[in-house]
Design a protein around this nucleic acid. Structure first.
Lengths: 336, 336
DNA sequence: TATATTAATTAAAGCGCTTTAAACTTTTGG
DNA sequence: CCAAAAGTTTAAAGCGCTTTAATTAATATA
């Protein structure tokens, strides 16, 4: 099961076997063949662990995702996975459930595991505790935040220009006559994931010279279908707004469900819009107007940044905003 | 960054530091404190790679999933992740996209990575090539197939009793008057994932003394929303059946979309049912009648089996079928 | 006080690989 | 035919940890 065994059988040194197994030059063709034959015969699979230790390089990238059940992260994972594979890296995926403590634990494990770099989709929370990220900095472990949030001015990240997306969507809704546009965000108002949205949202109102009510910004305990469903239902029972927008598509689906249960017609009585543009959004009834996040681009750019950090190449830009795109479907219509 | 450094600073041997870091007895309280203090001071994080090499145990479980974009696998991943964590294992997740070659590659990487055990949700395809699984057997690497399919009589697996689920669903539909019940499966008819379904489906017809048409079993290129949408649309345009059932929920959502586009009312004109009972199925319009797979139980049992294999404890049963449950919602109704 | 126990510490080998530098072989060219 | 160059091969150290067995120190027993 080890180089040594092959070396003995082939009557060569371990060094030679190592060269052969790594397909490196400097070994005679016949020797190479003999070694290869023996390796195949005994079903030898090199021990990556030993290799990593010797080379001080694991060829593994750690990916921390918050929520496997949201297809948005599913897509992101898929893209990252593909890019990693294309570059000969394996992925070590872990799930944080938007929980800071779990996130910390995971990052610790990744450090212990000596991954070559880390991509993290940060929890939606504003964190009091940034110790672990400081540690990552001190240890100079390549790390980029992707898709959704950041914590410190010094963070390296790639995410959608949320403010711009919210701005465009809000602007559009205002332009077709809506005024009471409820914006459902998550509870950490000051977290960039939320504050950037409300910034764009507010800007749209201001630029249109329309004053808006702070009560229109509603918080939700979590970014899931179910939480949004509950919040929306309660909200619509008291007073029906013109439109409801959410910070992601699955939440908007929750809103659609709440409306259906209350026999509120979308979009005739209520316009609804999401954010992300997951595949599912074209399958809902009605299909969702949404802000498309260019998830593939986010994956590409964050991986590129990560690889540059790993290879110690210069990184042109450490904080990248990817432009969003407004996608109009039939869950929104002109205010009657 | 290593034991050696701490050992030097603390004026003790590496062995002692190792004992302290692993919180093992046999070291003086004062010594322990001194070591711990120094470790904390320099921000020492043990090197799991070196540890794995020395102990010949990685404390990592490899999880191979076919499709991150289907929330069913998202849930499964979540459960497996939690159980692994509770048992002090890390998860190494990889994605196979239902592709045999990728699956092989991944398994090879996992072997190279010397994971302690493997959970694989096998590709839907019947494979001609089972080499890699034979290799896993020969190397005596603990491995259990979960959720969906198996390849060889000797496989260890935990999956839903698909035949039973299809039987119950079909039986129910027959009992409320449907006759032309189309069953959309994937292209590998002989793969257990499909053959078990059609077995239950056929049995329901037989037991009800109703003969059925082989044409009612329709194949689809993949188990996704989109493929099912395409197939269903084509199918309904030629002749509308009484009901359509699919092998998972996302496919049923695709069918619902196709029906809506053709202005076919569900369930009045067409009954639709899925399989899985993902959360989303209560959010579709109409909510889906489906066969619930007890995904948590599958995760629990497969992990239990895996841990037993890893710990070389006896495994009571190597092939486990988990009973499904019929969930009635409003996408099906009595045939008018 | 000498001896037997028990506690604390550590030297050294080993896990399976890579890599450097040196040694040995073969080929080339004058 | 010999020296230089090029091609092969390998001994040995090292990656950072665990573990065994032996050593040393501290404590208890008679």
């Amino acid at each position: 099961m080890s180089l040594k065994i092959i070396a003995e059988k082939a009557q060569v040194s371990e060094a030679t076997v190592s060269l052969v197994m790594n397909n490196r030059p400097g070994v005679n063709a016949l020797t190479r063949e003999k070694v290869l034959a023996i390796a195949a015969e005994i079903g030898y699979v090199p021990n990556s662990i030993a290799r990593s230790l010797a080379m001080n390089k694991s060829n593994i990238i750690g990916l921390v995702i918050t929520d496997v059940e949201n297809p948005f992260y599913g897509s992101f994972t898929k893209y990252v996975n593909d890019i990693a594979k294309d570059n000969n890296y394996s992925l070590f995926i872990s799930i944080s459930y938007h929980d800071e403590n779990i996130e910390s634990e995971i990052l610790n494990t990744l450090i212990a595991q000596r991954v070559d770099g880390i991509i993290v989709t940060p929890s939606h929370k504003v964190r009091s505790n940034v110790d672990i990220f400081d540690q990552i900095d001190r240890k100079k472990i390549p790390c980029v935040l992707a898709t959704s949030n950041y914590m410190r001015e010094s963070d390296k990240f790639v995410m959608t220009d949320y403010a711009e997306g919210s701005y465009r969507l809000t602007n559009y809704l205002l332009s077709i006559g809506h005024r009471r546009i409820v914006h459902i965000i998550t509870s950490d108002k000051d977290s960039p994931i939320n504050s950037l949205r409300t910034e764009g949202y507010r800007r749209a109102f201001e630029e249109n010279g329309i004053k808006f009510d702070d009560d229109l910004i509603v918080t939700c305990n979590g970014a899931s279908m179910n939480y949004a469903y509950l919040v929306a239902k309660k909200l619509m029972q008291s007073k029906l707004p013109d439109a409801i927008i959410t910070i992601n598509d699955v939440m908007a689906i929750g809103v659609e469900k709440a409306a259906k249960e209350l026999k509120i017609r979308i979009p005739e009585e209520l316009s609804v819009a999401g954010y992300d543009d997951i595949l599912l959004s074209t399958f809902t009834e009605p299909p969702l107007t949404t802000v498309r996040q260019n998830i593939e681009e986010i994956a590409i750019q964050s991986m590129e940044m990560l690889f540059n950090l790993i290879d110690k190449k210069p990184v042109a830009q450490e904080q990248i905003f990817i432009p969003p795109e407004l996608i109009l479907r039939s869950s929104t219509m002109v205010k009657s």
